[in-house]
Design a protein around this nucleic acid. Structure first.
Length: 767
DNA sequence: CAGTGAGCGAGCTTCCGCTTGACTT
C-alpha cells in the first residue's frame, strides 16, 4: 500500500500518550513500532535560571530525570529504524516536543518525518502518513519564547517574594493572576452591603386556573409594601396585554476540558482534579477521546454515528447535524472535543464515578447533534385601577422538546426567576381575581465566591492557562497557602412577609438561612499580602490581559515575523530592572490593623502578618505582648475585635491528670486536647472554649480503649486482622492490605463487612 | 503536626505545559 511498508520494524512512530500509541498501532501494521514520549522529554535546567540572559537567552535544556529511561529506549529503537515519524500534537507544545525529540535522539533531517492528525481513525492516520512535513521551527521558537518567558518571570519574582515577604512563596504568569481573581472577588464581597427590598407576587385566577405574576416594582420598605397591599384590597385587576412569542433553545457544544470540569462540578459535585482523574481512566480504557482539549470539533465518524444513534432512538425529526466553532481565546485545537469513542455505547463498565462521568459525556455529545427545542413564551401583563404598577406573568411551554429530551446544561446562577409552565388562555380586557398577594422581603446577595469550576471558566475566558494546567494551577495556589477551599455555615435571619388573602393583610416573620458556602475559594491573609505587593510593583504582569498580549507576540514568532530572542529581550530588559529596583527600594507593606482596645485592660488589639502567618497581638511596646494565631478560616481583613479576643481564651489548662497537664487548644487540624505529649481531637458537639475537665478525661479514656482494640482479630478468620496505620485503618488479609472506607468505624467493623471490602477491592483490581 | 512573633545566616524554596506512573493500606 505505502512505500514505507518494506521490512519489519523499519518505522518508529512517536506520539505523546501511551493510550494513543496503543490505538494507532492497530491501524498501522507490523512495519511500524509505535511508542510514546509521555509528553515533553526535555526542559530548562532547574538548578538555576536555566537561561543564559547574557548569551542571547540561550536555553539550557536537560533531559527530565523521569524521562531518562524512555529517552534511552527511544534512542535504541530510533537507531534500528530507517525512519522516525514524529507524531506529537499539532500545536506549539507538540511541535516543540517533536523538535526536542529530534535533538535528543540525534536524528538527521532526512531520517525524520513530521506528521499530525486530529482524530484517531484509520483514514486520518493514513492521510497523515501520506502527507509528512518538516518540523516548523518558527512554531518551535514560539514555544521556546513561551517557556523562557515563564521561567524568567517565575524564577525572578519568586526569590523577590522570599526576600520581601516569606520563604518558599511563588509567583508566576498564571498563578499570580489566579490569586488576584480570588482576592478581588473577596474584597468586593467585604465591601458589599446587603439591602432588602419587597418583592410582590400575586396568585391570579382565570378560567379556573391559578398562575403567578410578579409586580414590576420592588418596594424599599415594609410600610410601602403594606400600603400597596391596602390598595390591592379593593382593586380591579384587568389583563392589559397578552404576548405570545415562539422561541427556541439550542444544545450546548460538546465538552472541552473546561466545560467538562464545570458540568461535572455542577451535576456530579466532582472537584476539578477528580473529574480529570476519572476522565483519565475512561481515556485509558478507550471509552472516551482525549480529555485535555480546547476544541469543540467532532470527527466525521462521530457525526455519523451520532446521527444513526439519534435517528434510531428518537426518530429523524430529533436529529440536526452541527459543527461547533471554538470561541475561547488562545485555543490551539490539537484534538477533538471530549466524546465517547463509540457513541453507540450508552453505558460502560467501571466504578460508579466512571459510569456517571461517561454518561454525562455521552449525553452532552449526542444532545449536541440533536434538533433545537421549540418553545412558546407568553407574557401577560395585568394592570390595576388604583396603582401605576403592573403585574407580569411569564409562561413557557415546550412545543417540541428536541435535545431537551436528553440533556439540560446547568447554570451557576442561583437566582432563577419564577416561570409558570402553562398560562391560562386570557384576553386583553379580561377581569381577574386575586386569590392571594404576598410581599416578601428579599435581601440582595453579594457576588458569588469562585468555585474551582467557575474559576476555570473565568481563566479560560481570559485565555490564561491551558487545558492541561487548570487542575494543577488550582492545587498550586492552595499548596502555596494563597487560597483555601472551604465550607461556611450560614446564619439565620428573619424576613418580613405581608400576605393579603380574603381581604385581610397579615404580617409574619419567616426565618431564612443565608451566607452558607460549600466548596468555595477564599483568599488567605498571605494570599492578599502577596497579591498587593505584586500589583504595586508588577502591574504589567498582574494585568488580566498580559497573557493575551504576549500570546499575540508568540503568534508573530510562529508566523516567522519576529525573532523569539528579540521578543524576550524586549520583555526582559525592563522587567529585570523592575526586579532590581524592587529588591533595592521596596518593602512589602507590613500589614497592621488596629481592631480596638481590649475591654478588660484597655490595651490595643492589633492584627499583623508575621513569619508564621497572621496573628493578633494585645498590647504594644510592652515587655510582654500577648500573641495568638488566626484560625484557618479567619482573615486579617475581616476579623472583628470580639473574634480576636476570643482567640486568647485558648489554650486552656484544665488541670492535672496522671501528673500531666490537660491542655485544650485549636491546631492545624482543628480543636484538640493535649495530654502527656499525645493529642486527642475534639469533635462536635464538644467545644474547645467550654469543654470541662471531666469530659476531657472521658475523651482521653475512650480513645485509649479504642486504641486497645487494635489489632482486632476474629476467631473465625485467623489470617485476617484490622489495623491502624499511617494512612488510616485497614484490613490485613493473607499479607495483602485493604483500606477501610471512612464511613465504616474500624472499632466496630464486623467480619462480614471485612469480607465485603476485600471482595470489592479484589474484584476491582482483577478488572 | 501542635505553638513561634528580634536578627543573623547556612542552604533550601520557585515558573508553565506536555504526559503518566508509583505510591499502595
Amino acid at each position: 500500500m505505502l512505500n514505507y511498508f518494506i521490512r519489519m520494524e523499519e518505522n518508529l512512530v512517536i506520539v505523546e500518550s501511551p493510550a494513543k500509541a496503543k490505538t494507532i498501532k492497530k491501524f498501522l501494521g507490523d512495519s511500524f513500532i509505535v511508542k510514546s514520549s509521555f509528553g515533553h522529554v526535555r526542559d530548562l535546567a532547574k538548578k538555576d535560571l536555566g537561561v543564559d540572559v547574557d548569551k542571547n537567552y540561550s536555553p539550557n535544556y536537560i533531559i527530565s530525570p523521569d524521562k531518562k529511561k524512555i529517552v534511552a529506549e527511544l534512542k535504541k529503537l530510533a537507531s534500528k529504524s530507517k525512519l522516525v515519524w514524529l507524531a506529537s500534537d499539532e500545536d506549539r507544545e507538540g511541535e516543540a516536543i517533536s523538535w526536542h525529540l529530534k535533538e535528543v535522539l540525534g536524528l538527521k533531517d532526512d531520517k525524520i518525518k513530521r506528521i499530525v492528525f486530529h482524530e484517531i481513525t484509520k483514514e486520518a492516520i493514513q492521510k497523515a502518513v501520506e502527507n509528512p512535513r518538516n518540523i516548523d521551527k518558527n512554531l518551535v521558537n514560539a514555544q521556546q519564547a513561551r517557556r523562557v518567558l515563564d521561567r524568567l518571570v517565575g524564577f525572578n519574582l519568586s526569590p523577590l517574594l522570599w526576600r520581601k515577604i516569606k520563604p518558599s512563596l511563588s509567583a508566576g504568569r498564571v498563578q499570580s493572576v489566579t490569586v488576584r481573581l480570588i482576592v478581588e472577588r473577596e474584597r468586593e464581597i467585604i465591601k458589599f452591603k446587603s439591602v432588602s427590598k419587597y418583592k410582590v407576587i400575586a396568585n391570579f385566577i382565570a378560567n379556573g386556573k391559578v398562575f403567578k405574576a410578579e409586580l414590576n416594582y420592588k418596594f424599599d420598605t415594609g410600610k410601602e409594601a403594606y400600603q400597596f397591599l391596602e390598595l390591592c384590597k379593593n382593586a380591579e385587576f384587568l389583563v392589559e396585554d397578552v404576548q405570545k412569542k415562539p422561541s427556541k433553545k439550542s444544545p450546548a457544544p460538546p465538552f472541552i476540558t473546561s466545560t467538562l470540569q464545570q458540568e461535572a462540578s455542577r451535576k456530579l459535585k466532582f472537584s476539578v482534579s477528580q473529574t480529570m482523574r476519572v476522565a483519565q481512566t475512561l481515556y485509558e480504557h478507550g471509552y472516551i477521546t482525549y480529555m485535555r482539549t480546547d476544541s469543540v470539533n467532532l470527527s466525521n465518524l462521530a457525526l455519523s454515528t451520532a446521527k444513526k444513534s439519534i435517528t434510531e432512538e428518537f426518530g429523524e425529526k430529533y436529529h440536526k447535524s452541527r459543527n461547533y466553532k471554538t470561541r475561547s481565546k488562545g485555543a490551539q485545537e490539537a484534538h477533538e472535543a471530549i466524546r465517547p469513542t463509540f457513541i453507540n455505547n450508552k453505558t460502560i463498565e467501571g466504578t460508579r464515578q466512571e459510569q456517571k462521568l461517561y454518561e454525562l459525556i455521552w449525553k452532552r455529545t449526542v444532545a449536541s447533534q440533536m434538533a433545537d427545542a421549540e418553545l412558546e413564551k407568553t407574557i401577560i401583563s395585568v394592570k390595576t385601577n388604583n396603582s401605576k404598577y403592573k403585574f407580569i406573568a411569564n409562561g413557557e411551554i415546550i412545543k417540541f422538546d428536541g435535545f431537551l429530551k436528553l440533556y439540560i446544561e446547568s447554570q451557576d446562577d442561583e437566582n432563577i426567576e419564577e416561570i409558570n409552565d402553562m398560562l391560562p388562555d386570557v384576553k386583553a380586557g379580561q377581569a381577574l381575581s386575586a386569590k392571594k398577594i404576598e410581599a416578601v422581603e428579599k435581601y440582595s446577595t453579594h457576588p458569588p465566591r469562585y468555585t474551582e469550576a467557575s474559576l476555570v471558566k473565568k481563566l479560560e475566558e481570559l485565555g490564561i492557562g491551558r487545558p492541561s494546567t487548570y487542575a494543577p494551577t488550582i492545587s498550586t495556589v492552595q499548596q502555596r497557602g494563597y487560597v483555601s477551599k472551604e465550607d461556611r455555615n450560614g446564619n439565620k435571619r428573619e424576613v418580613e412577609v405581608y400576605t393579603l388573602e380574603n381581604n385581610e393583610i397579615k404580617k409574619r416573620l419567616k426565618s431564612e438561612n443565608y451566607g452558607a458556602e460549600y466548596g468555595k475559594l477564599f483568599p488567605t491573609s498571605i494570599g492578599m499580602v502577596v497579591n498587593d505587593y505584586l500589583i504595586d510593583n508588577f502591574d504589567n504582569i498582574m494585568n488580566y490581559n498580559f497573557t493575551a498580549r504576549i500570546e499575540k507576540e508568540f503568534d508573530e514568532i510562529a508566523l516567522g515575523n519576529t525573532e523569539w530572542t528579540k521578543m524576550i529581550d524586549d520583555f526582559y530588559k525592563p522587567f529585570i530592572s523592575q526586579i532590581e529596583d524592587s529588591l533595592k527600594n521596596t518593602t512589602a507593606k507590613k500589614y497592621e490593623r488596629l481592631l480596638g482596645n481590649n475591654p478588660e485592660n484597655g490595651k490595643p488589639v492589633v492584627v499583623k502578618v508575621g513569619r508564621y502567618g497572621p496573628y493578633v497581638q494585645i498590647g504594644e511596646n510592652e515587655e510582654e505582648p500577648k500573641f495568638a494565631s488566626l484560625l484557618k478560616e479567619q482573615n486579617i481583613e475581616t476579623i472583628t475585635l470580639d473574634e480576636a479576643i476570643a482567640l486568647f481564651r485558648l489554650p486552656r489548662n484544665l488541670g492535672q491528670f496522671e501528673n500531666e497537664e490537660v491542655i485544650v487548644a485549636i491546631g492545624k487540624f482543628g480543636p484538640y486536647i493535649r495530654h502527656n505529649k499525645k493529642f486527642y481531637s475534639i469533635k462536635k458537639p464538644d467545644d474547645p472554649y467550654t469543654i470541662e475537665y471531666d469530659r476531657a478525661i472521658e475523651i482521653i479514656n475512650k480513645s485509649r480503649e479504642n486504641e486497645k482494640l487494635f489489632p482486632r482479630e476474629f476467631k473465625d478468620a485467623p489470617n485476617l486482622k484490622v489495623l491502624k496505620g499511617r494512612y488510616g485503618p485497614y484490613i490485613s488479609y493473607n499479607n495483602k492490605n485493604y483500606k477501610i472506607p471512612r464511613k465504616i468505624d474500624p472499632a466496630t467493623i464486623s467480619l462480614e463487612e471485612c469480607w465485603d471490602i476485600i471482595k470489592k477491592i479484589d474484584n476491582k483490581n482483577n478488572k
